[in-house]
Design a protein around this nucleic acid. Structure first.
Lengths: 351, 351
DNA sequence: CTCACCACAGAGAGCGCTCTCTTCCTCTTC
DNA sequence: GAAGAGGAAGAGAGCGCTCTCTGTGGTGAG
């Protein structure tokens, strides 16, 4: 204990300091910290005590330099902001409860594993390049990506760069990359079956943007199912998954088809808007018009009446997406995998 | 060019490789990359070409090791999840448009500066410790913190640890730490003045959680202003800034004070719920009951009628918060600063 | 013509950690 | 009792970068 000087003043203690305090070598301290066997329990104890005494905290940069791992991944929201191009702040996306659920699911999975998400937006070529550079610099070990439009070039760029990445939703063009998705068509079929079973006869739909696969699939699935029920023609107005677009779509639907008695709306946010419009026009829901949404997001519960909707297990999907990414990081040669989730019908009061 | 082997296969090129390709020393390449003067323009050009040829990307870990900077900051949401303790996923907070605006403002400021936010949640002692360790390990250079409850211990922990941090909202106990805030009382006064000027006589309020300073201040400010207008007693029901709590509060207000003709609701989300309840009870807005919200969030525009509200410049505040944090990181001995923003009245149709 | 001075480039010492390689020592085993 | 096996600890070489220090050639002043 004669040379027990407090580590160097000002700067934080290093492995070396701990080693000296414990009277062992740097390597041994490292072994203890990283939980590698082959260390005498008594020495382990001594080292642990020395760590506590010195207040040692490992330096992540030094560690990353040799392990080539950062313990961080990029959570990229891509193609956002295009719609409202004048916005000086990115991340209006957050306003959508959908994104919140994705982030929640990702964090829920990563946190117990000591991995942290770095929030990134990529809506222009420049910002996409930024994401790529960021990953190549080794700031993050991989990326999970939520695209908001179908022609997003980022998935391809990531594949070409050989960077570990997982998508939320199937890429429009076939790409050797892992992704998670939900069976949009099956979900839409549940909605169709429910509306028909309820006795609705004049059924219409408000679709999502047809530039997005989810929008296309939900519409196609709905139409297919309705055709099976003997309704070959289903009026449709295209929305953009946003509240205002849902409002406009419902207004138009009502103007063109005043006798409508059942509507499948491709997401809850637009369904909420539709409900508002229906009420405004004096239509009772579900008596006059039954409405089924999609997502089972927080918006569904904020609706009056509470929204009957198709449950989209976003949190579970996001967690799975994170799981896949870690697997790819761990094992770079792993084959791409897709995990498809089942939607389910949640009956509330609107239909 | 005789020893012009492609950098080591598999691994990415290093400074050394670029230096060799350009026929200069590592130091010179480093100078060029970091834009330090004293480099012959011709050599700069050669180096730049070599960088392009080798596809060199600097390794951030190596850089961080010596500079002691990561170019990342933690974006911490603290005290979240307590309310709905049963939630397996953190980050329901995201559902609140407020958080989205903060994230957007922070990212908007940081991104042009090459700094990235790491998303963290801290709702328990364990996760708070995690945040602290994370920062101490040098994973991030500092933290911006959004607390959702007043007795959050994290600000104090950050101060005690001497870590650069900036808060969104004044800490309840005086603490040597920088923060940004809005004049809640002045905003509430604007609402009071507007309701009175409109001719409302039986005015009530739905406050935010009184455990939060913002909740307290908005209520106090509103009551003070109303007292100045000769209304010493203002009925109040406490909400929790959430949609369901706003609903319940409005129901109760209506039950206890059926003659109410003006309501100040402490945030837009609750105001939206209040509007729904009023309509349900057949009250016309603004004819029968005028409603003023607070925040001017996206919820205000989704309301029918569109919500008259107090504008809370969240994005600007978030950007300022990020600016302050970078300043503190740059200059560790900087004195704590507070920046207080002015709210303003946004008149729409609800009042 | 000499010398101080400046502008620029290179050499090389780390930053703090991990991990392989080596050494040492204690057990078995015949 | 000697030899081999195997477990546990230390030595030391980097990981890729920044940055200080040193060296060198060219310029202007004395």
């Amino acid at each position: 204990m004669s040379e027990g000087l407090p580590p160097s003043p000002g700067s934080s203690p290093t492995l070396e300091d701990v080693a000296r305090a414990a009277g062992v070598s740097r390597a041994t301290v490292s072994r203890v910290i990283n939980g590698i066997r082959n260390v005498d329990p008594a020495i382990q104890e001594t080292v642990r005590r020395a760590i506590a005494a010195t207040g040692y905290v490992p330096n992540q940069a030094a560690r990353s330099l040799v392990t080539r791992r950062t313990g961080a991944i990029a959570l990229v929201v891509s193609g956002a902001g295009d719609e409202s191009g004048e916005d000086p702040f990115p991340g209006q996306v957050f306003a959508d409860p959908f994104f919140g659920r994705v982030a929640g699911g990702v964090v829920g999975f990563l946190r117990p594993r000591g991995v942290h998400p770095i929030l990134m937006f990529a809506e222009t070529d420049e910002t996409r390049a930024q994401v790529l550079t960021y990953l190549r610099q080794g700031n993050a070990d991989g990326a999970v990506l939520v695209s908001t439009n179908a022609d997003d070039p980022l998935p391809r760029l990531l594949v070409d760069a050989g960077l570990p990445a997982v998508l939320f939703a199937r890429p429009p063009e076939p790409l050797p990359i892992s992704y998670v998705d939900v069976q949009h068509r099956a979900g839409a079929k549940l909605a169709a079956d429910h509306l028909v079973a309820r006795g609705c006869r004049r059924i219409a739909t408000i679709s999502g943007p047809l530039a997005v696969l989810a929008g296309q699939d939900r519409l196609a699935g709905f139409r297919d199912a309705m055709a099976m029920h003997g309704h070959p023609y289903i009026p449709c107005v295209e929305g953009r998954f946003t509240y205002p677009s849902g409002e406009a779509a419902m207004e138009r639907l009502l103007a063109e088809h005043p006798d409508v008695d059942g509507v499948f709306v491709a997401n809850d946010v637009m369904a909420q808007a539709a409900l508002m419009v229906l009420r405004h026009h004096g239509r009772r829901v579900p008596e006059d018009v039954a409405v089924v949404g999609f997502d089972d997001s927080s918006a569904a519960l904020a609706c009056r009446p509470p929204l009957t909707t198709i449950r989209h297990p976003v949190e579970d999907m996001a967690a799975e997406m994170a799981r896949l990414l870690l697997a790819h990081i761990e094992e770079p040669d792993r084959q791409p995998t897709s995990v498809i989730f089942e939607p389910s019908l949640v009956v509330r009061e609107s239909a």
